[in-house]
Every structure is written in C-alpha cells, then in structure tokens.
Amino acid sequence: MSGIANAFRRHPELMVAAVLVLTVVTIGLVNPVFWQPSNLFSLLRASVVTGILGLAVLLVMLSGGIDVSFPAFAIAAMYLTVKAMIAWGFDSILPAFAMATGIGLLLGLVNAVFVHYLRMIPLIVTLGTGTAVRGFILGVVGTSQINIDQMPPKLIDFARTQLFSVTQADGSQAGLSAMVLVYAVVALLIHLLLRHTMLGRGIYALGGGEEAARRVGFNIRQTTFLIYGLAGAIAGFAGLLHGAMIWTANPRDMVGLELDVIAAVVLGGASIFGGRGTVIGTILGGLTLVVITNSLIILGIDTTWQRVVVGLIVIAATAATAWRDRKRIA
C-alpha cells in the first residue's frame, strides 16, 4: 500500500482534514467573501455547540452505542435552568452551568440504567428517553419561548465575551467569540480522558468487544454509566451554552439536530460499529459540517437544500467509514 493511503488509514483525521481544506478552498474560490474574518469567526462560533454535542456523541459511539436523546436533554437542561434562574432570581454563570450539567448528567444516567441493566439497544433507549423528556418539558414545564428581554443578563454577557476583534477592510469590527475557548477546554478534557486515563481506554475496549473488556478486568457497569452520564452532562452544558449564545430559551429548539451532530462525528472518522474515533477528528468533522451547511448562502444555493446536504453527508460519511472498517475486518 502506498504511504499516503497508509497514513490515511492509520490517522482517519487526516482524511477529514483533507476534506475540510478542500471544502474551504472550493468555497473560497467560488465566493471570496468566505475569507472575511467576520465569516470565518461566525463559522467557528457556529461550530461550538455542534462540536461540544459531537464530543458527547463520540463517547457513546466509541463504546459501540448511539445516542439520539442529547438534543432533548440539552434543551431540557437549558430550559429548566433558565426558568429556575428567572424564578429564583439567581443570575450567576457557574451555578447556572453546574445546574444544566447536573440535569444532563441525571438524564444521561437514566439512559445508562436502561442500557446496562435492561440490556436494551441504545438507539431505542435514547429515542424513548429523548422523546419522553421533550414531551415532559412541553407538557409540564412550559411551551413559551423565553426571549432576550427575560433572559438572565449575565448569561448573555458571558456568551458575548470576545477573545479579540479585528477591523475588516470595510471598517467594520469582527470579533471571535470566547465560546471557542470554552469548546477548546471541553475538547481538551475529553481528549485527556479518552487518551490518557484507564476509564477512557475502557470506553475504546468496550467498543472493541464487551466480553473481552470484561475478561481483562474492565468494570463494564462503571464504564457504561460513565459514558452515558458524561454524554448527558456535556449535552446539558452545551444546551445552556446554546441558549446563552442565541439569547433565547426555546423549548422546541434543536429538533432534528441529532442528525447533524451524528453526521459531524461520523464525518470525523468515528466508526458506527464502535471502538474507533478521536476528539480531533470530531472537531474537524464538526467544522466541516458547519462550513458546508453555512456556506450554502454565499454559494448562492437556496438554504432549503441544507437538510438534503446534511442527509447526503451522513450517508457518504457512514459509507466511507463502513467501507474502511470492512476492509480492516476482511
């Protein structure tokens, strides 16, 4: 096998990186507006929530499962937290994020209970819990959208923080959201967990084979609870971050987002069969997806095509990884 093909097989991230570069260069050639700092910064900002949710899905997919409940959990955590902040009149960042993360964690542990003790298929479990949680929020907590005038001001101020800003050619200012940094920190923590702790290696081992993982001495229950609990917690965190960044808390938000996020993770080289995938790949996959879907406008393509593009990306990326994994197994 040639050196390049080999490098791609050993480091699937290189493939995603190549796709990303190709996409960016193509779009930039069609419409140079793409290269304006304001556009680039807004793409980075747009990839923050998708990317963080992608990391949650990555954890589950590595273990051989799949999660479609996280948008519901994210919205539930966000809506409940914002409601509580307004009702109890607390407006500080850390307790708010702690609460959202905690709600996500609890919901994630519910998934773990079903998956571990009842040995249910993760897809069915998370379809069920996700739907139930959405129903609960709309039916019991409320259906009304909380707009900017009611949103806790500190939350909005936090999400508006900029790392730096530059003056563009036309004299306008373009700033890079500090949320990119939050994303980087979450990504780094997950990377360290996956790469440098036994708990993280246990997730890969579980994805490689549950029976084998049990035989070498991994605690399967602990690992399963860690995976789904952490995925839920990350989703809760990302949910509140999302609300803060768009200045609204809408209980009907993020419907259908699971497909975009799963597309990003698969595009990032994670295997739908488990055991394969990296944080850096997921980040690149998320960026690629965001760049493609958000650039349709500047490419002059009607945005109604966005869902078609997402669907095609899921199919193409899954086909590519499935083809790769089959070649490995054969």
């Binding site: 290696r201 890969y204 081992a205 994805g207 490689g208 084979g209 029976e211 084998a212 993982a213 035989r215 070498v216 295997s271 488990g274 055991g275 394969r276 490995r328 197994i329």
Partner: peptide, 8 residues
C-alpha cells in the same frame, strides 16, 4: 476468540 481488542 483470543479476547483481544482489534481496534487497539
């Protein structure tokens, strides 16, 4: 089946 992890 050797109980190995093919992905590692």
């Amino acid at each position: 089946d050797f109980s190995l992890f093919g992905n590692l």
